[in-house]
Design a protein around this nucleic acid. Structure first.
Length: 480
RNA sequence: GACCCCAUCGUCUAGUGGCCUAGGACACUGCCCUUUCACGGCGGCGACACGGGUUCGACUCCCGUUGGGGUCGCCA
C-alpha cells in the first residue's frame, strides 16, 4: 500500500460505557492506523467535571482492549490540560477573534424558546458582539459572569471529507459558539482542536453526528493558526428502530456482548463491515486480514442498522474458526460458574473438555450456549426429557440397553469405529433398525433427544460412564 | 422549524451508463445428507422510494418530491 502513515485517535468521554457506535469508530481508526503503519491514539474527553465519571474510564479502556484495540502511546486525559485550554481561549479573545458574552443561561434559553415559537433558526443572536468597551468594563466591574464566544467571520466554510464528498456551509449558519464557560474552562470544541493539534492528529475520522462540530472547529483552527487535519465523517449505526444508539435507550455496553457469549473477533469483524465493505462477497475476516484490506474509500455514506441476529451469525462462524483449545479456555470458567464442575477438575481433564467443545461447536451460536448443551457431560443426575422418555424408554428398551451396554463394556478398544461396529452388529442380531437402539441409548446417556452424533457422544463420554448410564436408565425404565 | 447528510431485498451489502430478467450474506423457507439436533450442499421467497429529465440505453448522471437520519447546550 502506498498511503502515508496516518495518526488517528478515538476520543471517548467517560459519561457512559462503550457502546457499539464508539467501538465502531475505534475499529475504523485502529484499522486505518495499522493499514498505513501509522499510530492509533486514545484520548479521554473529561472536560466536564460534572458529567464525567472517572470510574467509567477503566471499563471503556478494557472494552476496547477486549476488541484488541489499545493506544500506541500514552493515553491523554483532557482533565490534565485544563489550564492549557484556558490560555488558548484567552488568546482568541485577546486576538479579537472572540468576544465576551454576558448572556445568562436563562436569557439564552428564552432566546431559544422564542426562536422555536417563531420557527426560526436556533442560533445565538450576537447580542454581546457589539458591546462597547465601557459596557464591558461596567459589567465586569458589576461582577457579571461572562463566557467567551468565538466570532465566526462572514463567508463560507468548506472542507474535503474522505467519506462523503466535499462539505460546504454558509457561515451565517454557524453560530458564534461558546469556547470557554463563565468559569473559564474550555468547552468540547476548543479542547478537541487544541488536543488534535498537539497530538499531531493527521486524520479525524468520526461519526456523522460531528459534521456541525467540524464546521465550528475549523474556525478554531483558523483563529489559532493551526493547520487543518483531514476529516472523515462516517455514517451512524442506528438501532433497529432507526434511532441513534444511546445508553439512555437501553443499548448495550460492548462488554455486555462479551458476557452474552460474543467473541471479540466476531464483534470486530461485524462492526467493521457495518458501513464499510471489502467490496467482495466474503464477509468473515480476521483482524490481520482486515488491516490488510482496509481502505477509507470503501465506507458507505448511508446509515446502517445494528442487527444483533447477524452479529450472532458472524459469531457462529468465528466459533467454528477457533481451535478447540481456545474454545475450551473460554468455556471452562463458564462451566465452573454454572456449578457443573470445578477449576481443578477441568485442569486435570483438559482433553475431555476439549473433545466436549469439539463435538458441540457446530451447534452453538454464542459461547454461553456451550453451558446449557454440555450439562450432561459433567453432571450425572440429569432427568430424562419427558417426551423422549415416553417415546424411547419402552419396556423392550430395557434389554436393549442392558445388552448393548454389556457389549460396549467388553470392547477392548473403545473407539468411534468399534462403537459403531458393536451397535451395527447388535442391531443386526436383534433384527432391529439401528434407530431402535440409538434413540434410547442417546436418551440414557444424555437425558435429551438431540445432540452430537451418537458415536461421538459415546466416545467422548467414555466407556465407563456410558455403561453406567445405560444400566441406570434400564433400571429406571423397569421402575417407572 | 433552520441547516446538513442519506436513499438497492425485512437487515448488512455488491453494483460507478449497456456484463442486471440486479449478485452475496443474515433471517424466513423447500429439498438433500442424517440415528436426533446441528453443520454442510442445492433451491425458493425477497429490493433498485416516487416523478421528471439527460442518453441510443439508466440502479448507476441531473432536478424535484417523498421518506429516513443527524445537528442546532456555558454536554461530549
Amino acid at each position: 500500500m502506498t498511503e502515508n502513515p496516518v495518526r488517528v485517535r478515538i476520543a471517548p468521554s467517560p459519561s457512559g460505557y462503550l457502546h457499539v457506535g464508539t467501538a465502531r469508530m475505534a475499529i475504523a481508526n485502529f484499522l486505518y492506523a495499522r493499514h498505513t503503519s501509522g499510530q492509533f491514539l486514545i484520548r479521554i474527553e473529561n472536560t466536564d467535571a460534572a458529567r464525567s465519571d472517572d470510574s467509567l474510564i477503566e471499563p471503556i479502556i478494557s472494552a476496547l482492549k477486549w476488541l484488541g484495540i489499545e493506544s500506541d502511546e500514552e493515553i491523554i486525559f483532557q482533565s490534565d490540560r485544563i489550564e492549557l485550554y484556558k490560555k488558548h481561549a484567552q488568546q482568541i479573545l485577546n486576538d479579537g477573534k472572540g468576544y465576551r458574552c454576558f448572556c445568562s443561561p436563562e436569557l439564552l434559553a428564552a432566546d431559544r424558546a422564542e426562536a422555536v415559537a417563531n420557527k426560526g433558526p436556533l442560533r445565538y443572536n450576537r447580542r454581546c458582539l457589539n458591546l462597547s468597551q465601557e459596557e464591558i468594563d461596567k459589567k465586569i466591574a458589576d461582577g457579571e459572569k461572562f463566557a467567551i464566544r468565538i466570532q465566526i467571520p462572514e463567508g463560507q466554510t468548506t472542507f474535503n471529507d474522505i467519506v462523503s464528498s466535499d462539505l460546504k456551509r454558509d457561515n451565517v449558519e454557524i453560530e458564534d459558539f461558546i469556547i470557554a464557560r463563565s468559569d473559564g474552562t474550555a468547552t468540547y470544541n476548543l479542547a478537541v482542536v487544541i488536543d488534535d493539534n498537539d497530538m499531531k492528529i493527521s486524520h479525524v475520522v468520526r461519526g456523522n453526528d460531528h459534521v456541525t462540530n467540524t464546521f465550528k472547529q475549523i474556525h478554531i483552527y483558523n483563529a489559532l493558526g493551526f493547520t487543518l487535519p483531514t476529516f472523515g465523517h462516517v455514517p451512524l449505526i442506528l438501532r433497529p428502530d432507526k434511532k441513534k444508539v444511546s445508553k439512555r435507550l437501553g443499548d448495550k455496553d460492548v462488554a455486555q456482548y462479551k458476557e452474552e457469549g460474543i467473541l471479540p473477533e466476531a464483534m470486530f469483524n461485524f462492526l467493521c463491515l457495518l458501513r464499510w465493505s471489502p467490496k467482495t462477497d466474503r464477509e468473515i475476516y480476521n483482524v490481520e486480514e482486515l488491516i490488510e484490506i482496509f481502505n477509507p474509500n470503501h465506507f458507505n455514506n448511508s446509515n446502517a442498522i445494528f442487527n444483533e441476529e447477524k452479529l450472532e451469525a458472524f459469531n457462529k462462524e468465528h466459533i467454528v474458526l477457533k481451535s478447540d483449545h481456545e474454545l475450551a479456555t473460554l468455556v471452562a470458567p463458564l462451566l465452573v460458574d454454572a456449578g457443573f464442575t470445578t477449576k481443578y477438575w477441568l485442569e486435570t481433564r483438559w482433553e475431555y473438555l476439549r473433545s466436549v467443545v469439539s463435538i458441540l461447536k457446530t451447534r452453538v451460536r454464542r459461547i454461553s450456549e456451550f453451558v446449557a448443551l454440555s450439562k450432561y457431560f459433567f453432571e450425572f443426575d440429569y432427568t430424562y426429557d419427558p417426551q423422549a422418555d415416553e417415546k424411547n424408554f419402552t419396556p423392550e428398551a430395557v434389554d436393549l440397553l442392558n445388552q448393548f451396554a454389556e457389549r460396549l463394556e467388553k470392547l477392548d478398544t473403545y473407539s468411534k469405529e468399534t462403537i459403531e461396529k458393536a451397535l451395527s452388529e447388535y442391531a443386526l442380531e436383534k433384527e432391529i433398525k439401528k434407530g431402535k437402539l440409538i434413540h434410547p441409548t442417546r436418551l440414557a446417556v444424555s437425558g435429551i433427544p438431540n445432540g452430537p452424533g451418537l458415536y461421538d457422544l459415546l466416545l467422548v463420554l467414555g466407556q465407563e460412564a456410558v455403561v453406567e448410564r445405560m444400566k441406570k436408565a434400564a433400571l429406571y425404565i423397569q421402575q417407572k
